[in-house]
Design a protein around this nucleic acid. Structure first.
Lengths: 195, 195
DNA sequence: TGGCTCATTTGGACAGTGTCCAAATGTCGG
DNA sequence: CCGACATTTGGACACTGTCCAAATGAGCCA
């Protein structure tokens, strides 16, 4: 593992433990027995370092989400679970996402594109589940509602957890989130009547 | 308006516009033609200043939420709308809530108490709606699901809006949020069958 | 009115942050 | 071995929140 990778690795670890805002470049450097200037050589600004991490998270999520057609509800849950595992691995970024978007224009642009793609993918997944007979027929507003809800939840459940359930293990938090999504979809399963 | 109130007022305005982390005490002071030390005299730390603002938000929300018994679904929506207006007025705090909880122990404690009280209030409101015949009979897990969802949404919808819909007006964002809550509750209205 | 006490205001010091850069050091091919 | 290039180093810079002692002001009592 070269210096650049070591920096990214250590930075992510510290960011996850204590939050991006509370980890200084000098501390990351100290752990790796480097000097500050050394980090700014690989990553001119702290934002660049964070941006690189966010790109990796995006790639990991894209890998999970590709191939949206013809899946079962169980597959769908499994994929969401994978996304959630990714978010746990990069939780430091997720809890500061609003903060980061304001400050880092590069990150804001790429995040928006990623998000648009993810919402489209989510939408087509739900449509596919409907066609496969796993979900009942959905009106347009219902579909929009589900996409918006799932998107909001998957973005902020980890922040919610940071606030109210720090004492839970990762697995328990995953379970809490699955519970949420499952209940959200329950009224729209095949056999349930439209409102 | 005395100096203390002026400081709080100006700080909130700047926090809402640009985020707590990006507004320095010197800037708040400059706008009011004060010196930094003057602010730290009223509020020894920046956290104290933020804490005072959060107390006011909590009080505003508590005023909206008190008297939970015997209300209609329309009342319920109206109250949530009021809470949302409060959150808009203090949006600077809301988008940094995770950040703040980590740093400020005082705020973390009082926030947790407030949150617990609000969840209990929410729960009793839903139970009351059920008794009044506005909602169908809810299983325990369904009730928990609704409380958790509404709590998560009302805490983070404003962050979500900051990320994906900065171009919407406040009223449009309110509408988006109402749409979410309304659709969330739709399957649980009177006359809908249990799963 | 003059003088005393208390509160407010002031300007600057301090340690910390991210950023930047020139000089010192290492590395590797000719 | 030596010269050219890359990396590493240590420190400077402007900024942040925090803190404090001295200067200024306001209000009351003799």
């Amino acid at each position: 593992m070269n210096t650049r990778e070591k920096i990214l690795d250590q930075a992510l670890k510290l960011f996850n433990e204590r939050g991006i805002e509370y980890v200084g470049l000098r501390e990351i450097a100290a752990v790796l027995d480097l000097r500050v200037g050394n980090i700014t050589d690989y990553f001119p600004t702290k934002d660049d370092l964070v941006h690189e991490l966010s790109i990796r998270l995006g790639a990991a999520n894209a890998a999970v989400m590709k191939g949206a057609g013809g899946l079962s509800l169980a597959d769908f849950y499994a994929r969401l679970g994978q996304v959630m595992q990714n978010h746990l691995a990069y939780r430091g970024l997720l809890v500061s996402v609003v903060h980061l978007m304001r400050q880092n224009r590069h990150l804001a642009v790429s995040y928006k594109e990623t998000q648009a793609a993810r919402n489209a993918s989510l939408k087509s997944m739900l449509a596919s589940l409907q066609q496969a007979g796993e979900l009942r027929k959905l009106r347009k507003t219902e579909l929009d509602f589900l996409v918006l809800s799932i998107s909001l939840i998957s973005r902020f459940w980890i922040s919610e957890a940071a606030l109210s359930t720090q004492d839970l293990t990762d697995d328990e938090q995953v379970a809490r989130y699955r519970f949420l999504i499952k209940n959200l979809l329950a009224p729209y399963k095949k056999g349930m009547p439209a409102a």
